[in-house]
Design a protein around this nucleic acid. Sequence first.
DNA 1: CGTATATGTTCCGCGTTTAGACAAAATCCC
DNA 2: GGGATTTTGTCTAAACGCGGAACATATACG
Lengths: 407, 407
Amino acid sequence: MRKINPHDFKVARRGTSREINRQIALNLIRAHQPISRADLARLMNVRRGVASLLVSELLSESLIFEGALGEAVGRGRRPTFLYIDSRQRCVIGVDIRASRTYLLVTDLMGKQLGVVSSFQTNKDSNVLTQELSRRIKQILIDYKEIGVCEGVGVVVPGMVDPALGRVLHAPTLGWRDVSLRDPLAAALGLPVHIENSGKACALAQLWTTRSDVVASANSVFVSVSDGVGTGVVVNGELLRGRHNTAGEFGHVPLSIDGPRCSCGATGCWEAYVSNLATLSRYFGRDLADTRPRDAESATFTVEDLIARARAGDAKALAAINSTARYLGLGLASIINSLDPARIYIGGEITTAWSLIEPIVRGAVRERTLTEFGGTTEIHIVPAEEHPRLRGAVALVAAPAFAAPMVA
Amino acid sequence: MRKINPHDFKVARRGTSREINRQIALNLIRAHQPISRADLARLMNVRRGVASLLVSELLSESLIFEGALGEAVGRGRRPTFLYIDSRQRCVIGVDIRASRTYLLVTDLMGKQLGVVSSFQTNKDSNVLTQELSRRIKQILIDYKEIGVCEGVGVVVPGMVDPALGRVLHAPTLGWRDVSLRDPLAAALGLPVHIENSGKACALAQLWTTRSDVVASANSVFVSVSDGVGTGVVVNGELLRGRHNTAGEFGHVPLSIDGPRCSCGATGCWEAYVSNLATLSRYFGRDLADTRPRDAESATFTVEDLIARARAGDAKALAAINSTARYLGLGLASIINSLDPARIYIGGEITTAWSLIEPIVRGAVRERTLTEFGGTTEIHIVPAEEHPRLRGAVALVAAPAFAAPMVA
DNA sequence: CGTATATGTTCCGCGTTTAGACAAAATCCC
DNA sequence: GGGATTTTGTCTAAACGCGGAACATATACG
């Protein structure tokens, strides 16, 4: 039951019905391909004639194509299968992180076309833009056979204003109010979209086309890495909030008297469960301690810690188990406040999931208000799926499939 | 950019455009009444002919009516003003609280028609249903001139399943899986809607027709009373979540090692800022302490405490100031996680707003990640506006104005 | 009183859904 | 093999509703 905003609404025009049904047809083809016109009409509960017209419009725009004839099920004429036309169109996803920047080429459906490449991140945004532009151009030359590039999606660990194309604040990069989209778009001559990486991860799950997982229209992605990023999807739409800063669950406190967090406050969830927090716990060090570290602890990663825990190091296991418990307590807050159908968890900690799952789920049950909440689905997203890069790609590819704005 | 759910979508039919535009017209009349057909056409950016047809449809359904002619602005024919037809239709709102149950009659626009009446809540739901039914019937007899009753909205402090019409869990009433809607509807012969009271408060603000406040499509209502209830509105729609339990920010922790909360967990926001928490702080008592109290503290209310604080009682002021600080810290979590355009605060604590506002705002700024967040609008909703009752009424009245489901 | 201007109605054109008929293609059955 | 049956895909006419313009009505101004 949505209220119509009397100051910002969309009147239905003569072509609005067609626009809506066209997008529904496109999405059904995307979700069920290969599919015939007749099946499409049945799914949409319209006459075959209407489905045919919608299909011919999509065909003329090269959004879909007719493939081979399918096998007749029983008697009757064989159906012509329809497919999303992701041939000769590609999208480039860019994931800028504090240490390295990653690149990926996919087709319109998000299918990986090349290998993930990466280079060291130069924190001077001008230099980085040039480097990015050079490498993207090179990729498009190297993979000439993949066709024209529809656009570039860029994902940044920090606050972003996608409308203005600016990075408002990215602490780990040391960026404040940096213009990123327009310089890159100018250098490449391609449309560029930018977004926060936590939100992008949520988008990646929403727009996934994996056949084994049905995307959820109400979900939260929690990325546990150097920091904790979260993205929230409500009613199939990314929750942006007034200033595109919605979803910062990482800085909701577990204990306001807790350890100091990088954001300046104390006791943030992030200060309990980030990789840095876990390592600090292992080394018995204060999270805010910036003194030079000894050789071991300077290069030691959470993956190393998990390896030790699996090898039987009780101290390592204790550190990880603590993180697991705090992770679950924080997830309970997300469940209590948003009641999502599913929570996705990404980041290095997921490699220890088999170790920590019972502890996480126990902590979730401990603090969720209802039994329902305690049984909320938790899905692990391994790093190999590159959720940030896939989210970056979705920034470019998804608008073609999105629902039209109406009423 | 919303994703179309390929398993649950609404195809545009022949009448869909009309349906959309009809609702837009109705909402514009609601928001701008009195308004002429010509002005409506200008607002909608359609021809007067189209607006005229939409209006005649609304007229024939008695949703609106033609009033007196307006004054001509310059030359030309005088416009006929259109109004929402709230004559001869009324709605009844019911607010069930632990101690008393409140009743209110309004017209379709939510305008109060009678006085708010109340009676002691009988926690046996069967007895309460009978009592409610009796009183509602009596009201409809007493106020015969207000016309037919369109329905009854009931608001309960607890978890509700509006689809099934059941109260799943209401701790203060001692209810667990109580069927409320159907027995009441059967007894009255009227449609009945039930909802959680925090969500209803948010609805009340969303659907308000007060001319001095423009409703916000992204807001959070925080009700600070015996407990802390919250309702979240995203994109003009109530955030329900998977099990209609979204919005329980009251049980997000400030400190997991904090005081025990009524929910069984420790350190919930509610355990810091509820009226009980404030009073316990004043009396130096543990929140969970259920031992018999002395005569004074058994009947002493937060209003009394605020009166003492205003009169110069330093200890009372200190207790309230602590609550104010914790309130702000919790609001910061809401802002960080949802980034709403506006936060509404209701409950007894609002009577002390002039005392505590600087402290609340300071605490908000202390923990919000961005400057934007620190300046989020905070509106006080005084008890005289009866947000819960108005929300109950909105449950019945709003569907007539809601946007049609499309795509 | 005539002209100008604004409101509200009416009529027709056109795009889109809805319904149904028809041709094409494949299988089943005699 | 050939007709009946069934399924797919196209085509046509009707109904519905927006788009645009003409027209009647009502008021103000000079």
